[in-house]
Nucleic acid binder design. Structure first.
Length: 821
RNA sequence: GCGGAAGUGGCGGAAUUGGUAGACGCGCUGGACUUAGGAUCCAGUGGAGCAAUCCGUGGGGGUUCGAGUCCCCCCUUUCGCACCA
C-alpha cells in the first residue's frame, strides 16, 4: 500500500488524492451539461414525487437548517432513483410575505429588486450543495405567472361560497399606522418596531370556510401515512369537542324576551351554573345592560377593544362587569346574573358561557373575585354534597352528581346524556359537536403579496375579477411604507385602485388587501409539474401522473397551518371537480432541527453556520454527510465543528480504498459477509430516514475493509460507491467513473442484497445466570436449547454461578440463554 | 395551564419486537511512520478495583428469568398553543 496517498503530500503527484473542491465543481458542471437531474415528466414509468418544503429566500442567504432539510429529502430522492423510480425533486421559493417587506423597509431596497437578488444567491448555494433538483421546474410565488393562479384559487373558493367577508379584530399600531402580525407584538402588547402600545381594530376581512371541512380534515388523518407527531398536532388544532348547546331565558331592558345560547362540554353541571358570562363583543350585551350599569359596561368594552389580541389572551387576572340583567337557569329555574368578561371569547362556541364555578377553574377564579355563589354539583369518591370546594373539582371519571334534583346519583357521563335529553324536551338544549378550528383569515393589510382579485362597485357590490383579467398585477410602488392615512399601501395608488367594474363598467374600487402567505404555499406542489403550462394552474395529464405527492418532508413548525391549509385547498379543489384526489401528501415526515453546541442558532448569538464556508473547507459531500450523521433526522441534532472531520475522514478512506484496491485473487469471505450486512442495513435505514445509523454502518464497513492495513479487493469496494451515493453524490460519481462505470451512478442500480452471503456461520450466544451476563459462547446459529445449556455449563465462568440443576432455562434462539439457578 | 418530543460515557449519539447497554463519530491515551505533525496508519478508551467482581441509561417504586425499552409516582430540558367553555 502506498502510504504517501494523503492529501497533504505535495511530493507524490502521481497518486490521485481526494480533492472535493475539484471533484464537486466537475460533477456539478457535468450534471448540468448532461441534464442528469432532469426528469422526463411525460415519459416517466415509475413516477416518484419527492417534495421538500420550499424556502423563503432571505437576504442572509441559505441557512444551514434549510440545507439539513433539503439534504434529507435529496438522499431519499436519490435512493428512490437508484431503486428504479423516476424521481422528481423540484425546488422553488416562497418569496412573498412580511419578512421581505420588513427587511426591504429596513435597508431601503424595494422587494421587487431584493427578491430576485436573494433568489440568485440561494440558487448558487443550493447548487453547490449538490441537490438533485430539476431546476427547469422551479417557481417563485412572487412571479405574476404563479400568483395569477393563486388569485384564480381565490376565485374558485369564492364561487364555491367558501370565501366570505366579515369583521375581525387586528393588532393596530397607532404610531406606525399599520396592522401588526401577532409575532410583531412584543412583551405583552407593544409594537416591535416603535414600542407603542398596540390596539385592537375591527376591519372587514376575507375568510375561507375551512371550519366547514373540520370533520373531514380530522377523519382523513386516520388514513394518511404521516408522522404521528404531525397528525397529533393537527388533531389538537382541529379540536373536536362533544357537548351541548343550552338556552337561557332572559329579558332585555326593553322587556322583550330573548335567549342566550351557550356551548358547554359539561351539561351535567348545569345545576351549578350560578351566573352567565358574555364576551364583551357579544351582540346582546347592549340590550341587556341596564341604565344603571351602562357606564361601567361601556368603559369595560372600550378597554377590551383597546387591548391588543395577545395581551387579552395572555392576562391571567380575571376582570369583568355586571350587566344588570338576569337569566333563568333552566334546571334550577333560579335567576342568575349576567356578566361580561374578556375571558370569554367571541370566536369560540357561542361567545357566551354558563359559569359553573364549582367545576371549572376559570369560572371558579371569576366567582371568587366577584363574590358569586359556588355550588358543588359533582363529588368524587371521597366527598359528599356538602364537602367545601377549595378549587374547582374538574375530575369526571369518578364523579357523581349531587345537588342536581332528580339527577342526583348519576355519574358524570350518564348525567350529561340525561340532562341534555331532559332539557331538549323543553327545547332548551341540543347535543352539538364543536370544533376549535376557526375560519382562515386571508386578508393582509400589506403591500408584498398577491392582490385579492375583487372589485367593489357601488351598483353591483362585490364583483370577482374575471379570470381573463388575471393576474391582478401588484404594482411597483416605490414608497410602500404605511403613512398617516392609515389605508393599505395599494389604496394610495389611484390609477391602480380605481378600476372599471367588470359587470357594469362604472368606476369601482379594487380590494386593497393582499392575501396571506399561507395561500401562496397551500398549492405550490400542484404547480411544479405544470411549470411552463401558462394557460392552466395545473395541467390535467401531468397532474394525474405525478400527484398526489409521493413523499413530503418538512419541518414540524408547519404541522398545523401550512399542512392543514394545503389539505383544505386540495379538498376544496377536489370538490370543485378540479382534482381527482382529496389528500395532497400521501406520505409526510417531519424532520428535526439542528442546534449548535447545545444552543439555538441565532444572529444575536452569532453562532450561525454559514454553509458556504463549510462547503468550501470540507466539501459538500462531507458537509452533507455530517449534517445527516449528527443526529436522527426526525429529531435534529447538535452541530459541532469538531466532528465534521469524522465524516470527511470516512470519505477520504473510501476514496483511498478505491485507489489502492486490487482485482487479483478473490474477495475475503468475512469482508463480503459484512458488505452484505451493510447493504441490508443501509437499504433498511434510508426509507426510515435513519440516516445517521446508515452512515455509521458504512463507516463500520470501511473499518472492516481496511482493518490491519489490508489491501481491499475490488469486489469488496465497488458496491460501497453506490451505497454512499445518496449521501455523497459527487465523490460517488467520481469513483464510479474511475472504476469504469458508464453514465451516472444514479442511473445504475442499487446493490443487491444476498441473504446467504450475509448469514453468520457461528453466532455469539450470550449466557446469563439469573439474568446476569456470565459468558458468551460461539455456536452454530441453529443450536438447540439442550446443546446450548451443555456448552454453557462447560464454561467455568458460567458453571461457578450454577449450583445444582437449573430451576428454569430461558432460551432465545440465536441470541441468549438464561439459566435460572 | 394544555399538548408534543426528549433525558444514556468527557461530547454528538446507537440499541427495529422486553434479550450482550454504550454501535459509529468526536475527543482523549499509547504506539508506528516522520526533520516535524494540528497529516496518515495501528491499538486502547463507561466508572471503581491488582484481580475475581461490583456499580452503571434523570430520581423513586413495580411487573418479569431478564427493563434504556412495559406500568405507577416525581424531577428536569425543550418545542408548539395560550382562558377553547
Amino acid at each position: 500500500m502506498d502510504k504517501s496517498a494523503t492529501r497533504d503530500d505535495p511530493f507524490t503527484p502521481s497518486v490521485v488524492v481526494y480533492d472535493p473542491q475539484t471533484i464537486e465543481r466537475k460533477w456539478q458542471r457535468i450534471w448540468q451539461e448532461r441534464g442528469t437531474n432532469h426528469t422526463d415528466l411525460q415519459r416517466a414509468q415509475r413516477p416518484f414525487y419527492a417534495l421538500m418544503m420550499f424556502p423563503y429566500p432571505s437576504a442572509e442567504g441559505l441557512h444551514v437548517g434549510n440545507l439539513f432539510a433539503f439534504t434529507g429529502n435529496d438522499i431519499y430522492g436519490r435512493f428512490q432513483r437508484l431503486m428504479g423510480h423516476n424521481v422528481f425533486e423540484p425546488l422553488g421559493y416562497d418569496a412573498f410575505g412580511i419578512h421581505s417587506e420588513n427587511y426591504a423597509l429596513k435597508v431601503g431596497v424595494h422587494p421587487m429588486d431584493l427578491i430576485p437578488r436573494n433568489i440568485a444567491n440561494f440558487q448558487r448555494q443550493l447548487e453547490s450543495a449538490g441537490l438533485m433538483v430539476d431546476w427547469r421546474y422551479t417557481l417563485a410565488t412572487t412571479d405574476p405567472n404563479y400568483y395569477k393562479w393563486t388569485q384564480w384559487l381565490f376565485l374558485q373558493l369564492f364561487e364555491q361560497g367558501l370565501a366570505y367577508r366579515k369583521k375581525a379584530a387586528v393588532n393596530w399600531c397607532p404610531s406606525c399606522k399599520t396592522v401588526l402580525a401577532n409575532e410583531q407584538v412584543v412583551s405583552g402588547g407593544f409594537c416591535e418596531r416603535c414600542g407603542t402600545e398596540v390596539e385592537q381594530r375591527l376591519l372587514e376581512q376575507w375568510f375561507f370556510r375551512i371550519s366547514d371541512y373540520a370533520p373531514r380534515l380530522l377523519e382523513n388523518l386516520d388514513h394518511i401515512d404521516w408522522s404521528e407527531t404531525t397528525k397529533t398536532a393537527q388533531r389538537n388544532w382541529i379540536g373536536r369537542s362533544e357537548g351541548a348547546e343550552l338556552e337561557f331565558e332572559t329579558k332585555k331592558v326593553t322587556g322583550e324576551e330573548c335567549e342566550i345560547r351557550v356551548f358547554t362540554t359539561r351539561p351535567d353541571t348545569i345545576f351549578g351554573a350560578t351566573y352567565m358570562v358574555l364576551a364583551p363583543e357579544h351582540p346582546l350585551v347592549e340590550s341587556l345592560t341596564t341604565a344603571k350599569e351602562k357606564k361601567k359596561v361601556e368603559a369595560y368594552r372600550e378597554r377590551t377593544t383597546k387591548q391588543d389580541l395577545v395581551a387579552r389572551k395572555t392576562s391571567i387576572d380575571k376582570t369583568g362587569v355586571f350587566t344588570g340583567s338576569y337569566a333563568i337557569n333552566p334546571a334550577t329555574e333560579k335567576e342568575i346574573p349576567i356578566w361580561i368578561s374578556d375571558y370569554v371569547l367571541m370566536e369560540y362556541g357561542t361567545g357566551a358561557i354558563m359559569g359553573v364555578p364549582g367545576h371549572d377553574q376559570r369560572d371558579f377564579d371569576f366567582a371568587r373575585k366577584f363574590d358569586l355563589p359556588i355550588v358543588r354539583v359533582v363529588c368524587g369518591e371521597r366527598d359528599d354534597a356538602n364537602t367545601p370546594l377549595a378549587e374547582a373539582f374538574t375530575q369526571c371519571e369518578s364523579g357523581t352528581l349531587v345537588n342536581s334534583g332528580i339527577f342526583d346519583g348519576y355519574d358524570v357521563e350518564a348525567g350529561k346524556k340525561a340532562i341534555v335529553e331532559f332539557l331538549s324536551k323543553a327545547g332548551s338544549a341540543k347535543p352539538v359537536v364543536h370544533y376549535r378550528l376557526h375560519d382562515w383569515c386571508i386578508s393582509r393589510q400589506r403591500y408584498w403579496g398577491p392582490p385579492i382579485p375583487i372589485i367593489y362597485c357601488d351598483d353591483c357590490g362585490t364583483v370577482p375579477v374575471p379570470e381573463k383579467d388575471l393576474p391582478v398585477v401588484l404594482p411597483f410602488i416605490p414608497d410602500f411604507k404605511p403613512d398617516d392615512s392609515g389605508v393599505s399601501p395599494l389604496a394610495r395608488h389611484e390609477e391602480w385602485y380605481r378600476v372599471a367594474c367588470p359587470k357594469c363598467g362604472k368606476t369601482g374600487r379594487r380590494e386593497t388587501d393582499v392575501s396571506d402567505n399561507f395561500l401562496d404555499n397551500s398549492w405550490y406542489f400542484l404547480r411544479y409539474p405544470s411549470v411552463g403550462h401558462d394557460d392552466v394552474p395545473f395541467e390535467e395529464k401531468v397532474t394525474k401522473k405525478w400527484l398526489p405527492v409521493t413523499s413530503y418532508i418538512g419541518g414540524n413548525e408547519h404541522a398545523v397551518l401550512h399542512l392543514l391549509y394545503s389539505r383544505f385547498i386540495t379538498m376544496a379543489l377536489h370538490d370543485a371537480g378540479q382534482l381527482a384526489f382529496e389528500e395532497p401528501f400521501t406520505r409526510f415526515r417531519a424532520h428535526g432541527h439542528i442546534i449548535r453546541e447545545g444552543a439555538k442558532m441565532s444572529k444575536t448569538q452569532g453562532n450561525i453556520v454559514n454553509p458556504d464556508e463549510y462547503i468550501e473547507h470540507w466539501g459538500a459531500d462531507a458537509f452533507r454527510s455530517y449534517l445527516m450523521f449528527l443526529g436522527p433526522y426526525e429529531q435534529g441534532g447538535d452541530f459541532r465543528d469538531a466532528s465534521i472531520s469524522g465524516t470527511r475522514r470516512f470519505l477520504d478512506r473510501l476514496f483511498a480504498s478505491v485507489q489502492t484496491m486490487s482485482s487479483e485473487g478473490t474477495p475475503d469471505h468475512t469482508v463480503m459477509r459484512k458488505l452484505h450486512q451493510t447493504i441490508r442495513k443501509v437499504s433498511e435505514d434510508i426509507p426510515r430516514l435513519s440516516y445517521n445509523t446508515a452512515i455509521a454502518s458504512m463507516m463500520e464497513y470501511i473499518n472492516v475493509l481496511r482493518k490491519g492495513e489490508r489491501t481491499p479487493h475490488r469486489d469488496e469496494v465497488l458496491p460501497v460507491i453506490t451505497l454512499v451515493a445518496p449521501f455523497a453524490p459527487h465523490i460517488a460519481e467520481e469513483l464510479w467513473e474511475q472504476t469504469g462505470g458508464t453514465g451516472s451512478v444514479f442511473d445504475s442500480a442499487w446493490p443487491s442484497f444476498d441473504p446467504a452471503l450475509a448469514k453468520e456461520d457461528t453466532i455469539e450466544l450470550v449466557v446469563q445466570v439469573n439474568g446476569k451476563v456470565r459468558g458468551r459462547i460461539h455456536v452454530a446459529p441453529d443450536i438447540t436449547e439442550a446443546a446450548a445449556v451443555v456448552a454453557a455449563l462447560a464454561e467455568p465462568a458460567v458453571s461457578k454461578f450454577v449450583g445444582g440443576t437449573p430451576k428454569k432455562v430461558v432460551f432465545v434462539p440465536g441470541r441468549l440463554l438464561n439459566i435460572v439457578a
